[in-house]
Design a protein around this nucleic acid. Structure first.
Lengths: 158, 158
DNA sequence: TTTCGTGCAAAAGCTTTGCATTAGC
DNA sequence: GCTAATGCAAAGCTTTTGCACGAAA
């Protein structure tokens, strides 16, 4: 699994191109279905599920199948070109724009998932490694709470 | 859901008693099966899965069922007396000793899950709240890497 | 005696897989 | 034309649920 990434936020176009290149490098064919899934991933900021990507594409690609979405995700995972956020209850969600680990803030009311990149983790990770002896290679940091919109709604309904 | 906990590490006996008390408070019956599940949770430091708790108990309690394990977990979750670590691939793992959120360090080789409590999160959480506008109520922090034992094994096999 | 819990088996979700057909290259 | 990808349907896993029986209070 590749672990080097362009950490600077890329435009959807550049990101899409990079995913295409990575797949071509290992002789994967770029079919219309695959390209469509890559495009959704490169453009989505809302951490879509496999199901929602499929729903997004079925109108435009009537032959699209959920299996193909999953198979494309799998190819990207192998190459470190997608970040998988596992949720046993909500189903897994995906980030194709920024495939490297970064903290998320998640609303427990509306399910919104927001990126948070400002946090500098390197000091924390170094400390963790020193204290535990682990060689830490990745992480998953989720903060759960109520988003500003849902706080608003709560206040109005009181 | 209850969000207050005894944060000081309790002895297995005290922890077991607290879980029993919490269930009794809401008129849950303490059956031998439930008590057995609580006992495993109060004594386990290795973040067992539902399946492994079941496997642990089936010899001693031949009538034990996986459904009962899950139902007991559910009761504890409702009362904030167990921490559920969701993994869509490994299956969910549980921490009954320390039901409040705390960082974990996870070995991607052997699956070992180790607690790490020294990290002070309050400053980070405060910053997150200030920067995102979220009202943060809980978190899930996992660091993945290779544990000291597995590093050792790797070195020896080279 | 009444109510709650147990445990079997079936159902529910999400994800993966097998395989015949289709289509890149 | 050769090989890989698609997409259907079936299988796999973990977790949840329905329900009849059994046990706690």
């Amino acid at each position: 699994m590749r672990i080097q990434h362009e950490k600077a936020q890329q435009s959807p176009q550049k990101r899409l191109q990079q995913m295409v290149d990575r797949l071509r490098e290992s002789d994967c064919r770029i079919t219309p279905q695959r390209y469509a899934v890559l495009r959704v991933l490169a453009e989505s900021t809302d951490h879509p599920s496999a199901e929602s990507m499929y729903a997004n594409l079925i109108d435009q690609y009537p032959t699209m199948s959920l299996a193909t979405v999953y198979k494309t995700i799998h190819l990207l995972k192998l190459r470190g070109e997608i970040l998988e956020l596992e949720f046993s209850d909500l189903g897994n969600r995906y980030d194709g724009k920024k495939p490297y680990p970064h903290p998320h803030v998640i609303c427990t009311e509306c399910g919104k998932i927001v990126d948070h990149e400002q946090l500098d983790l390197q000091a924390i990770i170094n400390r963790m490694m020193a204290e535990t002896g682990f060689k830490i290679v990745t992480n998953r940091l989720d903060f759960y709470g109520i988003c500003p919109d849902c706080q608003e709604t709560e206040n109005n309904s009181e």
